[in-house]
Design a protein around this nucleic acid. Structure first.
Length: 877
RNA sequence: GGGAUUGUAGCUCAGUUGGUUAGAGUGCCUCGUUGACAUCGAGGAGGUCACAGAUUCGAGUUCUGUCAGUCCCACCA
């Protein structure tokens, strides 16, 4: 059978692509709403169209694909919804950068032309991302691919905005917000990263209007003093009580400003008196509202100083600080400068220091939306895996502040608010072309777009056709699980929950499976600036997608970061190669196998029963772990089973039968090999989809695509056979060990004498003695009740094992080895004896535990005396 | 300031409700290639489970504290 010849080594490049194309062509990924089966749906965390996928995505998609493939095999009606996010600010920045390289900018291009350019960008990178997903093996339903700015999603966005506005949950207001001078837009609170920086605390003195007295204030941002409209002290501060209500003269600008009392002020900090700049500090803004202070904007949106500030106007804010401090010093206003550490906000996108300033923006009132989202977690509708992230989520929601959703960008969903030039009326609604108040036609739409996360928040239902009541929504909403990194719990997860509950009355997903970040081999975050990012496609080209997937999913636990390492991908590739070759071995032997052959129960050997039982147990555990989202543990179990049990032991144990003359025996062995391999492939398929598919198709006992094959949940576990086989394997190990210790070549046949006290065990060993002779090159093997003289000795599971010396070994070395073993045994005995001496242990520990300790002790004592006598013998040689 | 998390073999990490003498991968050492696989096989060395207490018959596992690292949140100018 020519088709069964497969190459000597695993070469994933030869089949991954074609395999995927076949799956896709056969519509194996497609979810049919009308089909039966419990629904199992996942919406992909839409990757940004800013560029290509990185290792973090590869991890995220791998985890999802494993779950999806597992559930598909289990017979669930499985949908994995793919798509991309328009990533407003990030994508716009990318396109602007490329314009800059061409020597132009978006303003020169104009809004319309600029957007054309962004759409071109989106087409290019969007399709690249989808290609990468395919390369990784992601079994997404491509017929349902979505984009946050496609027609349907945009409709959902409008609908949500208008509804929230009409309910008073969206409002427009002139408030202080975080402003990025470089991106030239407002930001939400969570888009600001606070970094502790070394700065200074400048002490300034402000003179009272009607006396020569001063009050000293402390500030970290002297340039904002130009916008001061008051000074605040704590009402109980004895130092300043007498000044409250008096008027100060603001230095440099000579503005009259009041000194007032406010509980916000901390008496202990600085001088206990704080300058108040309502237009440029969130706290001052609040105080300003409380005390009806004027807001004077002294810093422009681009970070330069505003007009009307004399020589300071037009200066960059930090340049101004330098000059102003110098001037204050000369004026005698500057009293002192202290070193001071404080947290400074940076734009999470471009890292520029954000400027809090007052502007007119749109906000979502969050409190009433947050309450049900907290409740959903508390009542169990929504569960985090691992659970510890619940606390982070709740804590954030309980302290939530209003969400600034407007961005001064061009790329994104334009805010559906319209302004009438004739009467000044603002209208929120769809397709407004006429002012509802004055019927004027001079209407223009709000220039701003929405925060990118606004549309992402609707993703689980906007992708399913909402606001229409589609079949998809009925079948697949809520989704079963959301798989994402802990870094976007606030940005995305919490907001989806709020929106889902608000507009669908149901949580968008039942479980949130949180994973960590992929770091480089030194534990650093992978980033462009460090240049330490690893392109998943490159790894796939080198090692195969299966290897990458396997590496990403093993060796870490849910929620924890993982380190990427080439070594570990290589190790996964070696595993793939191992499976490949085990399969090749089977296929080679399968040439004349009658595919209708079925072995009878009576012809099964101990090894057969053992491997079947081990497979059944493994399947059970793999399934349990998958259900618990312990994907790494599930994968590890498969690794262990296939490599350490199936390959290292079982295949070796079948060789005698395969190469022998007895057709019955040979067929039985082949049948079990084939069955176990086929089921193992199914269990491994979610992790390594390509390899398992390609191999299974060559097996005579399998039909159709493995991805549609039934999941194997296990079967009867045969403890008796497992125990018996364990004894045999232990004996083999001891014999190998003994030979190795004394430098006898592994393959060199050596006589072995077994002394067994347990009669039942002796029978079993006698009938399976061939395993020992085959795998330990032990010949002849004899059973004896006597300890032979001059022999190496070892013990396994109550069996004493002797290898007659026959002058082959170094007695000194052997005595040393035995002495060491003796020490080990004595240590063990001491521990066990201590336990058994302890009356509390005897009385409180479960009976079977006590019993096993007793047995252990007597076994160990036997071993000791045996080893001791060996040593004596050797000494007398 | 609050919270989370990590500390186990040279390195990277498992260790699920407390129960044999703590495991894997990788690296290292010894031996081994005529047939599935050197991307391999057999064997070995290597750990007072960060430290100190507590609970328990029994703690890597639970609790408290200490030290060290990482991260998140937070309006102290």
């Amino acid at each position: 059978m020519e088709e069964k010849n497969i190459s000597k080594v695993y070469e994933p490049q030869n089949f991954e692509r074609e395999t995927y194309e076949k799956w896709e062509k056969d519509k194996n990924f497609h979810a049919d709403v009308n089909k039966d089966g419990e629904s199992f749906s996942i919406v992909i965390p839409p990757p940004n169209v800013t560029g290509q996928l990185h290792m973090g995505h590869a991890l995220d998609e791998t985890l999802q694909d494993i779950l999806i493939r597992y559930h598909r095999m289990k017979g669930d009606n499985t949908l994995w919804m793919p798509g991309c996010d328009h990533a407003g600010i990030a994508t716009q920045a990318k396109v602007e950068e490329s314009l800059r390289n061409e020597g132009t900018n978006r303003y020169e291009l104009g809004r319309e032309k600029f957007l054309e350019r962004v759409w071109q960008w989106k087409e290019k990178f969007g399709s690249r991302i989808m290609y990468q997903l395919r390369t990784l093996g992601a079994s997404c339903d491509w017929d349902r691919e979505r984009f946050t700015m496609d027609e349907g999603c945009s409709k959902a966005v409008q609908k949500v905005f208008i509804t929230l506005y009409n309910e008073g949950l969206i409002y427009r207001g002139k408030r202080i917000t975080n402003w990025c001078p470089k991106c030239n837009t407002a930001l939400s609170d969570i888009e600001v990263e606070h970094v502790t920086e070394k700065g200074h605390l400048w002490h300034l003195r402000y003179k009272f209007k009607d006396s020569e007295e001063f009050i000293e204030i402390a500030t970290t941002r002297p340039e904002t003093m130009l916008g001061d409209t008051g000074v605040a002290v704590h009402p109980d501060d004895e130092r300043y009580k007498k000044f409250i209500g008096r008027t100060l003269i603001l230095p440099v600008v000579n503005r009259e400003i009041p000194l007032f009392a406010d509980e916000y002020v901390d008496k202990e900090f600085g001088t206990g008196a704080v300058k108040v700049t309502p237009a440029h500090d969130p706290n001052d803004f609040e105080m300003g509202l409380r005390h009806k202070l004027e807001q004077i904007k002294v810093i422009n949106n681009d970070g330069t100083m505003a007009e009307g500030l004399g020589k300071y106007s037009g200066l960059d804010r930090y340049e101004c600080r330098k000059i102003l401090v110098e001037d204050l010093k000369n004026l005698g206003v500057l009293v002192s400068v202290e070193e001071h550490e404080h947290a400074v906000g940076h734009c999470s996108r471009c890292n520029t220091t954000v400027e809090p300033l007052v502007s007119r923006q749109w906000f979502v009132k969050m409190e009433s939306l947050a309450a049900p989202a907290i409740e959903a977690v508390k009542n169990g509708d929504l569960q985090f895996v691992p659970e510890r992230f619940t606390k982070i989520y709740i804590n954030w929601l309980e302290n939530i502040r209003d969400w600034c959703i407007s961005r001064q960008l061009w790329w994104g969903h334009r805010i559906p608010a319209y302004y009438c030039d004739d009467c000044g009326e603002m209208t929120v609604g769809e397709n407004i072309s006429e002012c509802p108040k004055c019927h004027g036609k001079n209407i223009y739409q709000d220039e701003d777009v929405l925060d990118t996360w606004f549309s992402s928040a609707l993703w689980p239902f906007s992708t399913m056709g909402w606001p229409e009541e589609t079949d998809e929504l009925k079948k697949y909403y809520p989704t079963k699980v959301l798989v994402t990194g802990y870094d976007i719990i606030f940005f995305w997860v919490a907001r989806m929950v709020m929106m889902g509950l608000k507009f669908r009355k149901k949580v968008p997903f039942r479980k949130v499976f949180i994973h960590g970040l992929v770091r480089d081999e030194f534990g650093r975050k992978m980033s462009k600036s460090l240049g330490n990012g690893v392109d998943p496609v490159e790894i796939i080209e080198k090692y195969g997608a299966d290897s990458l997937r396997f590496m990403l999913v093993t060796g870490n636990t849910p929620g924890n970061d993982l380190r990427f390492s080439d070594k570990r991908v290589e190790s996964a590739r070696n595993f793939a190669n191992k499976i490949w070759n085990a399969s090749r071995f089977l296929l080679m032997n399968l040439e004349n196998f009658d595919k209708n052959f079925k072995p009878s129960e009576n012809n099964l050997t101990l090894a057969d029963k053992w491997i079947i039982s081990r497979l059944n147990k493994t399947a059970k555990e793999v399934t349990e772990n998958l259900d618990k989202f312990e994907l790494g543990e599930a994968a590890r179990l498969m690794y262990e089973f296939i490599w350490s049990e199936f390959c290292d032991w079982y295949i070796e144990l079948t060789k005698k039968r395969l190469y022998g003359e007895n057709l019955q025996e040979k067929s039985t062995a082949l049948y079990i090999l084939m069955t176990v391999l086929e089921k193992s492939l199914r269990l491994l398929h979610p992790f390594m989809p390509f390899l398992t598919e390609i191999i299974r198709q060559k097996l005579p006992n399998a039909e159709g695509s493995i991805m549609l094959a039934e999941w194997f949940t296990g079967g009867k576990i045969d403890e008796v056979s497992e125990n018996q086989m364990n004894v045999i394997m232990e004996i083999i190990k001891v014999v190998r060990n003994l030979k190795n210790e004394v430098g006898v070549e592994p393959r060199k046949k050596s006589e072995v004498i077994l002394k067994i006290s347990n009669a039942e065990l002796a029978e079993i060993l006698k009938s399976n003695v061939n395993y020992i002779s085959e795998l330990a090159a032990a010949e002849p093997i004899t059973f004896s009740d006597e300890k032979p003289e001059h022999a190496l000795a070892g013990v396994a599971e109550g069996v004493e094992i002797f290898l007659p010396l026959k002058n082959l070994i170094d007695t000194e070395k052997e005595i040393a080895r035995l002495t060491k073993e003796l020490e080990k045994l004595r240590k063990g005995i001491a521990m066990t004896e201590n336990k058994l001496k302890n009356e509390k242990f005897i009385s409180k520990a479960p009976a079977e535990v006590v019993q096993s300790e007793r047995e252990k002790l007597s076994a160990a004592n036997e071993k000791i005396s045996s080893v001791e006598s060996r040593i004596e013998q050797l000494k007398n040689l």
